[in-house]
């Protein structure tokens, strides 16, 4: 079974085509980098997968569940860490996790145990009780990541997960993502830090103007001693 299957996805905002007949298949357990310039259609694609955006054409399934017909099962399989800090700024951080755990049907005991584990894992235990809005940018990013992991999803979608995080935390996060991948999670990562993608992902998909322009293994990308960045720039240069 594929973790993600997108067939002929087209998404328009009024008359602007954001994603144009996009098809992508990602197998279970893959670690895939989704690259593209700002406005290329990466975040829109993610929003269509997760149900935050509607789309005009195409089909998307996650772990075999259609995101429109079986939306509850499909969303249950996904953990999303979006670019924006979209948590309640007034809610204490443990409550942010608690509510989201509840949305995913976790009972009280499961939520409490998972919250402790994640706060500890992301170095947020000392900030318990603080409203989300009072955290620094780096801490907010960590909490958004913890929120994505709250219900232990099969598929993790991380949209710029290390933006604003200091070098030490970035490296710690990379190690954590590698562990999650080894544990069988499927991870889809967008990032403007190409060394991050090069280090973590085994496959890279490049989107430009809503279309897929490359879908290669990391080895193919770095063939002939090229860096991923060099190949990427060649692909996206107008």
């Amino acid at each position: 079974m594929n973790a993600l299957e997108i067939k002929g996805l087209t998404k328009k905002y009024d008359n602007t085509v954001a994603v144009d007949d996009l098809s992508i298949t990602i197998k279970r357990g893959e670690f895939v980098g989704l690259l593209g310039k700002n406005g290329a259609g990466k975040s829109t694609t993610i929003k269509c997968i997760t149900g935050i955006a509607q789309f005009q054409q195409g089909e998307i399934s996650v772990m075999g569940f259609d995101v429109q017909k079986d939306y509850q099962a499909a969303r249950d399989a996904i953990g999303l860490s979006p670019q924006e800090f979209n948590a309640d700024i007034f809610a204490p951080i443990e409550k942010v996790l608690d509510f989201v755990g509840g949305y995913f049907g976790m009972n009280k005991a499961e939520r409490e145990a998972r919250i402790e584990e994640l706060l500890e894992r992301f170095g947020l235990t000392d900030h318990k009780g603080k409203p989300f809005g009072k955290l620094s940018g780096g801490l907010k990013r960590r909490l958004i990541l913890a929120r994505a992991l709250m219900h232990n999803p099969d598929v993790l979608i991380l949209d710029e997960p290390t933006a604003g995080i200091d070098v030490e935390q970035r490296h710690a996060l990379w190690e954590y993502l590698i562990d999650l991948h080894k544990a069988g999670k499927t991870i889809i990562l967008t990032s403007h830090y190409l060394e991050e993608v090069e280090r973590l992902c085994s496959r890279v998909i490049v989107i430009d103007e809503g279309k897929k322009i490359a879908d290669l293994t990391k080895d193919q990308f770095t063939k002939g001693g090229n860096s991923l960045e060099k190949t990427y720039l060649e692909l996206t240069r107008v």
Binding site: T50, I52, A73, R75, I78, N86, D88, Y103
Partner: peptide, 14 residues
């Protein structure tokens, strides 16, 4: 306004 609604939209809530 703050896009926190996305938390619910991306969840299995009916």
């Amino acid at each position: 306004w703050t896009h926190t609604i996305d938390e619910m939209l991306a969840s299995p809530l009916s």
